[in-house]
């Protein structure tokens, strides 16, 4: 054990003598890392106060939290808020909206950057490739407020989309006031925003592919599609799997800020999701305990999804987060 420690030791002057007790070794290690622990001090304080203290605060989900009191001083009510939520009028609508929105996002939004990376990988002109990349990255840097502002303006009754419909002789539609268009608008604009930026990670994986592989397969007479299928796709497969797990593990909490900016009471029927409901109940109505319980439900389901996705992927593809 002591030998193992000294092997990792880049400082040659400190050689542990055989007879030292464990306590002394710990002391020496602490002393050796004293400046590093000093560096970690603000970091750990931050995590304690702004990450772990709120986790302790989750206990208010099981109380009738009174704002003047501390986390442990309010009246305990057990699972009351959870039961209220499950039996509430909006429960099934919220579940359905959250799942459906994310389902369509997964079906169309997830493969889009993969497709872009595959297509760009087939482009021989370096200039064209760089131009496409540069242009498609831009929306990632535009703020959500501006993006949603643009969406609202483009789909308004005298906006860009309806002008085009007008040219085609079609009636103008108030898209944002109609629940049936919400998911389409959300998913389409999401792809527009993120397709370029999300493809970077696949480019990074593709840049690691040995060009000899392509050459060798050409010698063997492999055509384009076979090269994509047998070389390119397998090269990015682990990346795809890991991103898919992460996406699924984040399924119920994604897009909160965008929905909050984009939805309106007229479209709640399809646009209101669990996280926006937590926001309205907690921040706007100050029902802290109830909203916290709904939020906790969301977090737990998310976490379960992550674990399930990871387990499935470990079984069938050998790629996993842990």
């Amino acid at each position: 054990m002591q030998g193992a420690v000294s092997e990792l030791d880049p400082v040659p002057s400190v050689v542990p003598s055989a007879g030292r007790s464990k306590l002394q070794r710990v002391k020496r290690e602490l002393n050796r890392g004293k400046y590093v622990y000093l560096m970690l001090l603000p970091v750990m304080l931050y995590y304690l106060i702004f990450q772990y203290l709120p986790m302790v605060g989750i206990v208010i989900s099981f109380q009738n939290y009174a704002p003047g009191l501390g986390f442990f001083e309010s009246k305990w009510v057990g699972f009351k808020h959870f039961i209220d939520f499950f039996n509430g009028y909006y429960f099934w609508r919220l579940i359905k909206n959250t799942l459906l929105l994310n389902f369509w996002l997964l079906v169309f939004g997830f493969p889009a950057p993969i497709l872009l990376a595959l297509l760009l990988n087939e482009v021989r002109s370096a200039l064209f490739k760089r131009t496409v990349q540069t242009v498609t990255y831009i929306p990632h840097f535009i703020s959500m407020v501006v993006i949603v502002g643009m969406i609202k303006d483009f789909v308004s009754s005298d906006g860009l989309i309806n002008q085009v419909r007008d040219l085609l002789g079609k009636e103008s539609i108030a898209f944002l006031q109609l629940p049936e268009f919400f998911r389409t608008i959300y998913v389409t604009s999401d792809i527009w925003q993120s397709i370029g930026w999300s493809s970077i990670i696949y480019f990074a994986a593709l840049s690691a592919v040995n060009p000899d592989l392509y050459e060798a397969s050409e010698m063997d007479g492999a055509g384009r599609y076979r090269k994509i299928w047998h070389i390119t796709l397998p090269a990015i497969q682990p990346t795809i799997v890991i991103l898919l797990i992460l996406t699924i593990g984040n399924l119920l909490s994604s897009g909160f800020e965008k929905i909050l900016l984009l939805y309106q009471p007229l479209t709640y029927e399809t646009s209101d999701v669990i996280s926006t409901y937590v926001y309205r109940k907690g921040i706007q109505d100050s029902s802290f305990s109830f909203a916290s319980a709904v939020g906790l439900f969301n977090t737990v389901v998310n976490f379960l999804l992550l674990i399930i996705a990871n387990r499935i992927s470990r079984k069938i593809s050998e790629s996993s987060l842990w």
Partner: peptide, 15 residues
Amino acid sequence: ITMFFSGGLIPTFIV
């Protein structure tokens, strides 16, 4: 741990 689990909006707001 904090990448996968957090207190959430309301407890953070209270803190």
